[in-house]
Design a protein around this nucleic acid. Structure first.
Length: 876
RNA sequence: GCCCCGGUGGCGGAACUGGUAGACGCAACGGACUUAAAAUCCGUCGGUCGCAAGGCCAUGCCGGUUCGAUUCCGGCCCGGGGCACCA
């Protein structure tokens, strides 16, 4: 064994062994437990960033750990290959998206291989491969048959200069990113998937996911947003009857029917039919409606914009009092939620209150608090009273609690035919049409005679032509006759192919099922039922809602079509935190910033070890610090995985990421931390080197039942630490997924080995066993170096093929334990008691301590408790 | 604006079910080795009072529950993620 740790040689040797022996090719084996471990597949953006490395390392640690538990492990990798950046690159460089994407995949795959990840590459695919997206199209047609996929209009961002639809991220301050033209909202026909049909199940089945983070489930539940409330109809007043040309009513949905008597106005969205009809008769109102139609479609923008409204001049009637209530158009009412109209109750809703104050509308109090606050205050008071309380000023419905008021009002409305209780979901159906080239084609044909005709199954997949180069002005498929021109499958006449492609979330909604059977000539096969569910899914918290919800929905649709047996795709979910680095810059001119990579900057500390500034190493001149941010090209604070591995090796990168922060938290990059991880691996290498290169021990015998009892106290203690470490690491990786504490405990073990005297009889055997445990425990995190060290410790079997050891119960027993003693909640002493001491014995020992006696001040004991192995608490 | 999460020494973090706050690592400081540097090894390391034993303060801020709160409850401040066409 050589004394020096050389990561490049070690990693080459270990990777060669794994490749040559196809160690990570997964096999379906009915006699073994299976473990399907999946990291979210990447978008092939060009190069791996450290966030990817972190994500895949977490998955790799778990995969290797479960392999060593004797499970049949599947850890696949693929590419989420359709999407906007490829089109942007094409616009910039004139390269077809397909070529750009496939080049990126080749480069990033090389980077992944360098990291020694235990991927089964035989199952790799990209979502832009026709044999994959074939089944997007096939399932879309099945959904069309079932009525889950359907057509309706939807609102998009429209760039009037480029005559093209823009993604939200292409809208900058309300203007098109390329043209600078003010963006308009435009309604166009689109295809939708009826995810709302599954709203109840998607909400209820969150209970079937005990191993998901609570916060993700909460976010999903709030997103689905089940509200129980009332639908209420406000009949048209005569003026509105005349406008709309018929009897009718303005429908609203509310969760606060108890405030119905507080209605002082109605508000409808700019797209509401009543608004459109009124606008046609009133130029001023029409210009306000036009103003609302400009600007962003994003909810965050709508919710933060100034609340504006205009009266329509038309009225509806209150369902109980018959009073005339004026209808307003307001920019904060969303057409997509509920009925696109709300009743305005300024006394008891914060947004309505703000709106009423601004527009000088009356405010009426109809609920008072149970405690007396907000009782009969002359409006306008300082704020809306939004809490539940007791109704007042509500005719026959006064003096009721919230639930009773809602129940009685709903019943009365139902009798009049003007309302009923119902459930409203916040969740909206999923619009999947994209007016873009680089995506999966929607398999439909438009025929002048037959209308919209599905592409027959035998003609699937509809293959996307790969050589086109978008130029930013619309979808190039619309200029490609070879794609566009097609015969109608029904009547044979000339017809036109649909040019919309699918949202890329479709591609990622079932890729995890295809990894089970990437070569199948059906969508999925029996192997999918073998591998599903994904036992462990790992990815960024930014996917907590959309991707995970769409995948759950898609899985349920496939289940209902009889394609799979599972109804939830991901058993256990880990949402990993982001990787941050420091940001440094100089401002050579106002508004212009030059950013510097943290690797080229030295931090200056003051006498208290506090950061006082930083200088650029190349010129020793100061640079400004702008805090921490995600690694990005624009801030020049990225760390390139390839050059990192060349310098330190993959194991150091992996160890640093696993040790520095728990997986769910953000991770701050630190050059010193990297050095620390590298140093630890060198220490481990040196410890094994010292062990195997010392002269052969006279006591080269294993720890057996026979001689365990002959160990001295120090040897027993090292064995206890070693087996305790094994126990803790097994639990930390297997149950808690707490990799940083697992590493920390092995560090403690190695510290103990360093202090250990291996000269006496059995000493070297005990040290050898401790090092074997350290190497095994670290192997999921740093697989290359441990692969080599395991061999050096005398094992013929490769470490990845070893079964994970179980701690020796004999090694773990302790005769006495140190416990703490609290008097009246304050720590006062530590005493030693037998490990199996009773409460009585422990309390007696505690009461004998001098410091305890001092703080008891001779007072009688009122209460005592022994928390086994930890502490005694005494109250006087 | 709405939903969710987080805040602990100079720094990253630990404390798993309400029971020893600061494991492990980094930085810093002192020492050994060295012609020297690097590397390595040994030691100190929240604040404060004390010769010491030991005491007091301290987990973003304010308040509460409890024998006991980083942990539970209420209110606030700050930072981050998501908001449906970035993926």
């Amino acid at each position: 064994m050589q004394e020096r740790y050389e990561p490049a040689a070690v990693e080459r040797a270990a990777q060669a062994y794994w490749d040559d022996n196809k160690v990570f090719e997964a096999r379906e084996d009915a006699n073994q437990d299976k473990f399907y471990c999946l990291s979210m597949f990447p978008y092939p953006s060009g190069r791996l960033h450290m966030g990817h490395v972190r994500n895949y390392t977490i998955g790799d640690v778990l995969s290797r750990f479960h392999m060593m538990q004797g499970k049949s492990v599947l850890q696949p990798m693929g590419w989420d290959a359709f999407g906007l950046p490829a089109e942007n690159a094409a616009i910039k460089n004139g390269v077809p998206p397909a070529k750009w994407t496939r080049d990126n995949i080749a480069y990033m795959k090389g980077q992944m291989k360098m990291l020694g990840l235990a991927f089964d590459w035989s199952r790799e695919f990209a979502t832009c491969d026709p044999p994959y997206y074939h089944w997007n199209q096939w399932l879309f047609l099945k959904m069309l048959e079932k009525g889950i996929a359907y057509r309706k209009t939807g609102v998009v961002n429209w760039d009037p200069v480029d005559q093209t639809v823009l993604a939200n991220e292409q809208v900058i301050d309300g203007r098109g990113w390329r043209t600078g033209a003010p963006v308009e909202k435009r309604e166009i026909p689109m295809y939708y998937l009826a995810i709302t049909k599954y709203a109840d199940e998607l909400l209820g089945d969150l209970e079937k996911l005990p191993d998901w983070p609570e916060r993700v489930k909460t976010m999903q539940a709030n997103w689905i947003g089940k509200s129980e409330g009332c639908e209420i109809s406000f009949p048209y007043a005569p003026d509105t009857k005349a406008l709309m040309g018929a009897d009718g009513a303005l429908k609203v949905f509310t969760t606060r029917a108890d405030t119905l008597f507080g209605v002082t106005f109605m508000a409808v969205a700019a797209e509401h039919p009543l608004a459109l009809a009124a606008g046609a008769k009133n130029a001023q109102l029409q210009s306000f409606i036009d103003e609302c139609r400009r600007g962003s479609t994003m909810e965050a923008d709508i919710a933060t914009q100034e609340k504006k409204g205009r009266p329509t001049g038309f009225h509806v009637l209150h369902p109980f009092t018959g009073q005339m209530v004026e209808v307003w158009v307001a920019n904060y009412v969303l057409m997509a939620y509920g009925e696109g109209a709300v009743m305005g109750v300024p006394g008891h809703d914060a947004r309505d209150y703000e709106f009423a104050l601004k527009n000088k509308l009356p405010i009426v109090q109809v609920v008072k608090s149970k405690t007396g606050a907000y009782e009969n205050i002359d409006p306008p008071w300082q704020d809306a009273f939004g809490d539940y309380g007791i109704t007042m000023n509500s005719g026959e419905f006064s003096d009721l609690g919230f639930q009773q008021a809602v129940d009685e009002i709903a019943a009365a409305l139902e009798k009049k035919g003007l309302g009923r209780k119902r459930v409203q979901w916040r969740l909206r159906d999923w619009g999947i049409s994209r007016q873009r080239y680089w995506g999966c084609p929607v398999p439909l044909i438009h025929c002048a005679k037959c209308g919209e005709v599905p592409v027959p199954e035998k003609d699937l997949p509809v293959v996307l032509p790969e050589g086109l180069v978008p130029d930013g002005s619309g979808n190039p498929l619309n200029k490609t006759p070879s794609f566009l021109d097609v015969k109608c499958p029904t009547c044979g006449a000339d017809a036109r192919r649909e040019t919309d492609t699918m949202d890329t979330f479709v591609d990622s909604s079932w890729y995890f099922m295809r990894f089970a059977c990437p070569d199948a000539n059906t969508m999925v096969d029996g192997r999918t039922n073998y591998w599903m569910q994904v036992d462990q899914y790992i990815g960024g918290i930014e996917h907590a809602i959309l991707h995970l919800l769409y995948s759950r929905f898609w899985t349920k649709v496939m289940r209902d079509l009889g394609l799979v047996t599972v109804d939830e795709p991901f058993k256990n979910l880990l949402t990993q935190g982001m990787v941050l680095n420091h940001i440094y810059y100089r401002e050579p001119a106002p508004g212009r910033r030059d950013y510097f990579n943290p690797a080229d900057v030295e931090v200056l500390l003051d006498e208290n070890n506090q950061r006082k500034g930083a200088i650029l190493l190349s010129d020793n001149q100061p640079v400004e610090w702008d805090g921490l941010g995600t690694m990005s090209k624009s801030k020049n604070n990225g760390v390139d995985p390839t050059s990192f591995v060349e310098q330190f090796g993959a194991d150091t990168a992996r160890l640093f990421m696993m040790f520095t922060a728990p997986p769910e938290q953000t991770l701050e990059w630190s050059e010193e931390g990297v050095q620390g991880s590298y140093r630890f691996i060198r220490r481990l290498w040196k410890a094994v080197f010292d062990q195997v290169n010392a002269p052969p021990p006279a006591d080269a015998i294993t720890i057996t039942e026979f001689n365990k009892g002959k160990l001295n106290a120090e040897q027993k203690e090292l064995r206890r630490i070693a087996h305790h470490t094994l126990e803790k690491v097994t639990d930390d990786i297997g149950r808690r997924r707490s990799f940083n504490t697992a590493v920390a405990s092995v560090m403690e073990l190695l510290n103990a080995v360093a202090k250990f005297d291996n000269k006496p009889l059995y000493g070297r055997v005990v040290a050898h066993e401790a090092l074997e445990i350290a190497v095994m425990c670290l192997s999921p995190m740093i697989p290359h170096v441990t692969h080599v060290l395991w061999r050096e410790l005398g094992h013929h079997n490769a470490l990845i093929h070893e079964r994970w050891w179980k701690p020796d119960p004999d090694a773990l027993v302790q005769d006495t334990v140190e416990i703490s003693v609290q008097v009246n909640g304050k720590m006062r002493a530590r005493v030693s008691v037998a490990a199996d001491a009773s409460q009585e014995a422990a309390v007696t020992a505690a009461l004998a301590d001098a410091n305890v006696i001092k703080y008891m001040e001779g007072k009688p004991l009122k209460f005592s408790k022994y928390i086994a192995g930890r502490m005694v608490t005494l109250v006087v």
